[in-house]
Design a binder for these strands. Structure first.
Lengths: 180, 180
DNA sequence: GGGAGCATGTAACGGGTTACATGATTGG
DNA sequence: CCAATCATGTAACCCGTTACATGCTCCC
């Protein structure tokens, strides 16, 4: 019985030795995984946590959040850690999946005007700049903790990725102008 | 009633004014869409074609393939073309979706050895080089036909994308060595 | 003879999303 | 007072995949 990559990603977040709630995991995913992988919907996080719990890969307990409410926090188990290590060390690595919607529109450029393509690319440029800045922000905001070197390397990689994305948008913009 | 992006992608393939079978569409997708978007499974292509047919966005007819068998070829209709143009011109463009599995493994680098990470990245490097070469091949093999300028631009973009991916893998490899 | 390519499709399944439901606390 | 944030979960739905089924032709 195998579990989806998203479950391993969550297990990965928990592998940095902390107790986290579903809500915490969502925020963490949004400020790390999001840049190079994906941030699952909160509802999926809750259901994956249930599955991981049922498999014995995590344990959970309730902690008081305030006077009236509790929240459920999760901790990775030894079996969970072993399964995660196994996944990193021995499982096949799928190729990256890229679904570049703005490019799909450019590919269909014969159906529209250069102005529309430019607008799409400008807006994608804003998005990429935003992602770069967010990745840069995530890199600087979190103090370099021991054991967190790899996430730091990947976050830096992500910032470079979006920087290059911007360069490539500009190249495309220039090429589209030439086509006119 | 909206249709998925994949359906528009297929409609897009048909928008270059040719009659194509499901099988043809799969081959075409593999040598164009695959580099920057995704190539749907053949089974999905057949079911999307049925949906597009039901919506009146394509028509189909059977043509003899050899003495014994027929094949069904599809042609975009005026309504299909109008819907596609509408999609390109007025629909919101989703941000690109990236699920970088090799990077997810690197992000979990604390769970394994540098040697394993290097192996993963080397293998990803081979994949990226392959994609670059395939994109380059697709660019040169298809003679520059009129009306196909945008696909050519996007294929060239894809080749650059994978070239940069290789550069970024090498940078990562260097950073991982430094971490040791 | 057998594998690769041509050609089309169905069924089962699962991963993941959106919408919905609920309710407390904090800060402008 | 109202929006945002904290916090958890269910249900419906759909996109897309893999596995399965079928059968012909071409070439080694």
């Amino acid at each position: 019985m195998s579990i989806p990559a998203t479950a391993y990603a969550l297990l990965g977040l928990l592998s940095f030795d902390r107790e986290l709630s579903g809500y915490d995991l969502k925020k963490w995913a949004d400020s790390s995984l999001r840049f190079f992988y994906w941030s699952p919907a909160i509802s999926q996080i809750y259901s994956e946590l249930k599955r991981l719990d049922a498999m014995g890969y995590v344990t959970s307990r309730e902690v008081p959040q305030d006077e009236l409410r509790n929240k459920r926090v999760y901790r990775i188990t030894d079996e969970g850690r072993a399964a995660l290590v196994e996944w990193v060390e021995h499982d096949d690595v799928e190729p990256p999946m890229l679904k570049h919607s703005p490019l799909l529109r450019v590919w269909l450029g014969h159906l529209t005007t250069p102005a529309r393509l430019r607008a799409i690319l400008e807006s994608h440029r804003v998005y990429a700049a935003r992602m770069r800045d967010d990745a840069l922000g995530a890199a600087t905001s979190s103090a370099p903790r021991p054991g967190m070197e790899f996430p730091a390397v990947v976050t830096a990689w992500s910032a470079r990725y979006y920087e290059r994305e911007i360069e490539m948008i500009d190249e495309l913009l220039a090429e589209i102008s030439e086509l006119e």
